[in-house]
Amino acid sequence: MVWKMGCAFAALLLAAPAWAGSVGTIKTVTGEAHVQRGGQNMAAAPGLALEQSDAIVTGNDGSVGLTLRDNTTLSVGPRTSMGLDEFDFEPAAGNMKLVTSVARGTMMMTSGTIAKLAPEKVSVVTKSGTIGVRGTRFVASVEE
């Protein structure tokens, strides 16, 4: 019995680092795509943990699918620059916020737990305005 519980606990510990200190994870990548973090570029790859203030940048043939800790999903299309500006997901403490920005290109969002529990705390910023998210799926397209 103790050994089985120990194995289950070990499995939980091994699974935890995927979210530990991150806001989400890249799930899919096609074509040219990278993540800008602290002035550095790194290749976008499935399993890469994302941090607050990361930017996802795709090339002419690039696309990236990612899932945030609150189960928000984002699909980033070709020739897009999208930032993960603010993310806070501690529902037990009442702390929830999601702010993304799209400088150019297209992004589709399917809202997760933050938008369901506190829709006023979710927004997408573009150069011509801000989209308030109220628990839905939508596409944002920003011309260069």
Rank of each mutant, 00 (worst) to 15 (best):
G38Q: 13
I114E: 05
M109N: 01
T106I: 05
H34V: 01
V124H: 01
F87K: 03
M42E: 14
R134Q: 13
R37L: 08
V57W: 00
G6M: 15
G6S: 13
V102M: 04
G112S: 07
D85I: 05
A15C: 07
W3Y: 06
N71M: 09
A20E: 07
T80A: 12
V2F: 02
R37K: 11
T113V: 15
P17H: 05
N71Q: 15
V2T: 05
T28V: 13
A92W: 04
I114Q: 00
G31A: 09
G94P: 04
F87C: 02
T30S: 14
T67K: 08
G94K: 11
T73V: 15
L50S: 06
L14C: 12
S101T: 00
G38W: 03
L84V: 07
G21P: 07
M96Y: 05
T58G: 10
S141I: 10
K116Y: 08
P46W: 12
Q36C: 03
H34D: 02
G65S: 15
A118Y: 06
S75A: 15
I114L: 05
S63T: 07
L12M: 13
T67M: 13
A103H: 04
G77C: 05
G112W: 01
A55M: 09
F87Q: 01
A11R: 09
G21R: 02
Q52K: 07
T110K: 10
T28W: 08
M82E: 04
K27R: 12
T106P: 02
S123H: 10
E143D: 14
T73N: 11
M109A: 12
G132S: 15
A33F: 06
E90D: 15
K127H: 10
S123L: 07
L12P: 01
V125L: 07
G105R: 02
L50I: 06
G38C: 03
L14D: 09
G135Y: 00
G135H: 01
V122H: 00
Q36H: 07
A16Y: 08
T130K: 07
S101W: 00
S123T: 08
T106Y: 08
A49H: 05
A140P: 01
D54S: 07
Q52S: 13
K116N: 11
A18M: 07
G59M: 13
D85S: 08
E90M: 11
I56M: 11
F138N: 06
S22L: 04
A8N: 14
S22M: 03
G65E: 14
A43E: 14
G24W: 01
A49S: 13
A140N: 10
M107V: 15
V57A: 04
M109Q: 03
I131H: 00
S111M: 09
V35W: 00
K4H: 08
S128P: 02
S63K: 03
A33D: 03
M5R: 15
